[in-house]
C-alpha cells in the first residue's frame, strides 16, 4: 500500500484526524518552544525557571499563565519545553527498543535452533524482573537524568517487541514465497530484509504507536519513585509529580491546587490519546483481513 494512500485514509477517519491534529499541535509547540517560552539562557533551556523560592503552588496569574507548581516552578514553561522532552522520550525509547526487539525477534525465528533458544532465554531473564523495579535499579545506578531514564527504559523495554516479531516471523517463514526464495538460494540478508521484515513490520509498528504515549507515563512513574528527570527539568512526568502532595487541596477546598494536576494531566492524556487513535486507525487500514 502506498504511504500516500495510508495518509489519505488516516485523514478521512474522524478519530485519527483528531489524533493527527493534536500531534501536529504538539509538534508546533515543540518546534516553537523558544518563542513561546523564551529561556533565560539557551544552554539550560530545559531548566524550568523559578518564580521565587516559595514552596506552595500559586494559581495562574499574570506572567504565569498556568500558575506555578511546588517550588515556584513555572508550569507554562515546563509544559512547553516538556513537549520536546515527551517527543524525545517517545521517539528514542520506542525507536531503539523496537529496533532491538526486531533484530532479536527476527534472528531467533529465522535461524531457530540454538540461536533461538539463546535469545529467548535472555529475553526470559530480562522479563523476569518487574519492569519498574529493573528500571529503578538501573537509573539509580546510572544516576538521575533523562538520558539515563531512557537507557533504562530501552534496556528493559525491548522484550515485548522481540516476542511479537518472533511469532510474526515464524508464521511467515513457512509461507511459500519465503521458502521459494530460500530454495532459489537467495542470501539470508536479502530474504530477511526483502521478504520477512517487510511483511512483519506492521504489527510492530502499531504496537510502537501505542507505546509512544505510555512512555511519558512510565517516565513519570520513575519521577514519582524519585529516580526520574532531575528536579526542575522540563518534563511532563515531573510536572505532574510536583502535584503529589497538593492533589487533595487544603484548608477546606479540595480544588485549591487543581492546576498542578489538571494541566500536565491533560497534556499527557491528549498526547497518549492521539497516538492511540492513530495506532487504532493504522491497524484498521493495514490489517489486510479487513479490506
Amino acid at each position: 500500500m502506498e504511504w500516500k494512500e495510508i495518509l489519505t485514509r488516516l485523514i478521512k477517519n474522524k478519530l485519527s484526524l483528531f489524533g493527527l491534529i493534536i500531534i501536529l499541535f504538539f509538534v508546533l509547540v515543540a518546534v516553537f518552544a523558544p518563542y513561546l517560552a523564551p529561556p533565560r539562557s539557551p544552554e539550560d533551556a530545559y531548566e524550568i525557571p523559578r518564580a521565587g523560592w516559595q514552596v506552595e503552588p500559586q494559581p495562574p496569574r499574570e506572567g504565569y499563565l498556568f500558575g506555578t507548581a511546588q517550588g515556584s516552578y513555572d508550569i507554562f514553561y515546563g509544559m512547553v519545553w516538556g513537549t520536546r522532552t515527551a517527543f524525545r522520550i517517545g521517539v528514542i525509547v520506542v525507536g531503539l527498543s523496537s529496533l532491538f526487539g526486531i533484530i532479536i525477534g527476527t534472528l531467533s525465528a529465522y535461524y531457530g535452533g540454538i540461536i533461538d533458544e539463546f535469545f529467548m532465554r535472555i529475553t526470559d531473564v530480562f522479563m523476569s524482573i518487574p519492569f519498574l523495579v529493573a528500571a529503578m535499579v538501573l537509573t539509580t545506578i546510572l544516576g538521575k537524568g533523562l538520558d539515563n531514564v531512557m537507557i533504562a527504559l530501552v534496556t528493559f523495554g525491548w522484550m515485548g517487541t522481540a516476542r511479537l516479531m518472533r511469532s510474526q516471523v515464524l508464521e511467515i517463514k513457512n509461507e511459500e514465497f519465503v521458502q521459494a526464495s530460500i530454495a532459489l538460494g537467495a542470501s539470508d540478508t536479502r530474504i530477511i530484509f526483502k521478504h520477512i521484515i517487510a511483511n512483519c513490520i506492521f504489527p510492530v509498528l502499531i504496537q510502537a504507536f501505542m507505546r509512544m504515549g505510555s512512555m511519558v507515563i512510565t517516565a513519570s512513574a520513575l519521577s514519582f519513585l524519585g529516580v526520574g528527570a532531575p528536579e526542575g527539568y522540563a518534563d511532563w512526568g515531573q510536572m505532574i509529580t510536583f502535584a503529589r502532595d497538593w492533589i487533595l487541596g487544603g484548608q477546606g477546598s479540595a480544588l485549591k491546587y487543581w492546576y498542578t494536576v489538571v494541566i500536565p494531566g491533560t497534556a499527557i492524556m491528549l498526547f497518549s490519546l492521539s497516538w492511540n487513535l492513530i495506532g487504532d486507525a493504522f491497524r484498521d487500514i493495514l490489517d489486510p483481513k479487513l479490506n
Binding site: 504515549g213 505510555s214 507515563i217 513519570s220 512513574a221 514519582f224 512526568g237 505532574i240 509529580t241 502535584a243 503529589r244 492533589i247 487533595l248 479540595a254 494536576v261 494531566g265 499527557i268 492524556m269 498526547f271 497518549s272 490519546l273 492511540n276
Partner: peptide
C-alpha cells in the same frame, strides 16, 4: 485513555480522598 494516561498515584490519591 484517561485511565491509562494519568499516573497511578493521581487516581490512588483521589480514591483515598
Amino acid at each position: 485513555t484517561i485511565g491509562w494516561s494519568f499516573p497511578t498515584f493521581v487516581f490512588g490519591l483521589l480514591v483515598l480522598m
